[in-house]
Simulated assay, not measured.
Amino acid sequence: MLKLGIIGTGAISHEFIKAAQLSGGYQLAAVYSRTLTAAERFVKAYEKVALYTDMVEFLSADLDVAYIASPNSLHFSHAKVAILARKHVIVEKPAVSLPAEWAELVKLAAEHQVYVFEAARNYHEEAFATIREFLRDKTVWGASFTYAKYSSKMQALLEGQEPNVFSAKFSGGALMDLGVYTLYAAIGLFGRPEKALYTAQQLPNTVDLNGAGSLIYPDFQVRIQAGKNLNSQLPAEIYTDQGTLTLDGIEFISSAIFQRLDGQEEVLPIEQAAHPMLEESQAFAGVLENGEDRTYADWQQATAAVHDCLFAMRREAGIRFEVDDD
């Protein structure tokens, strides 16, 4: 069983722990927080968990893998020190702010003989394997993927505060949060696009509240939409020469229905997991325990493609973070 350490005491870390424990592959062993009070509050629901407020001490503990869910702009530095301490690393999406940071993490992980993963949960859903196989004998003509959810931090923003999720200092915004899922859906199904475009409704700090864009492939386009100041109930659609495949979303998919051009319908055999993060936690444990290097290499290429697109789309829209060097 993998001994798990947590960096970042937000709600998403609790959800990953639930999924990790449900998978049967992990044991929560340690939590790092900047303050002991936050660490103690976080572990109330758990037993026998070591608490640390010193990162060096935390990374010196008996841990196999560190799950990192600190603010976006801190992911790179936290992942880097964990890798240098020879810990496997699972970094919550977006793993980095810049493509060069991801390349450096992958290089360092290889040098220190550990693995580094971006925790983009929908990429590891079995539903996408089912969809990919279903599309194998069809010609894709296009797709439309949307993920927009009103943020719990919007009220604070409207009151004049700048929450991390809307901060240029912390690499926030709709594209870097919910937009990541749309990119992983497209790249997981169709591969790396030739070009990525994006326009957005932006705050004065240039961070996007919502936006729309296109991923350009040789023979079709994928329209994407992401938002944190609005809700969308739009399904996802994939258009083919034989009909349209409609999904109930692009993450934690529970329904996929194909309507042929003659009107006949076919329901794909989609079985939703017991927890939205269960399949990714199982996938990571599988590689960590079995050393599936070809699978791991495929994941790294997909992550690199996602971050290349994120960077290109930010530049297209004029979204600038403090980490940007020009």
Rank of each mutant, 00 (worst) to 15 (best):
R314E: 15
Y150L: 03
Y181C: 10
A129K: 11
S144W: 01
E118Y: 05
I12E: 09
V114W: 08
G172H: 10
F220K: 11
T146W: 07
D298W: 02
E271S: 09
E40G: 02
S151A: 07
P193F: 14
T295N: 15
L63A: 01
G25M: 10
Q300H: 13
A19H: 05
D219I: 02
Q300D: 02
I12T: 15
Q282I: 04
S73H: 06
V65I: 01
E251Y: 10
Q201V: 04
G227S: 08
E194F: 07
Q301L: 07
E111K: 06
I238L: 00
A39K: 04
L59C: 08
L84N: 11
G179L: 03
R132S: 14
E126Q: 12
A85H: 15
N290P: 03
A82M: 13
Y67V: 01
E266W: 14
L178R: 01
F190Q: 01
L22V: 07
A19N: 14
T199G: 08
R192V: 03
R192Q: 14
G142K: 04
D293T: 07
H78R: 06
V91E: 08
N205K: 13
I83C: 12
Q221S: 12
P269R: 04
G211K: 11
E104V: 14
A148W: 00
L197A: 05
L59E: 11
E162P: 01
H14W: 02
D208K: 11
I131E: 01
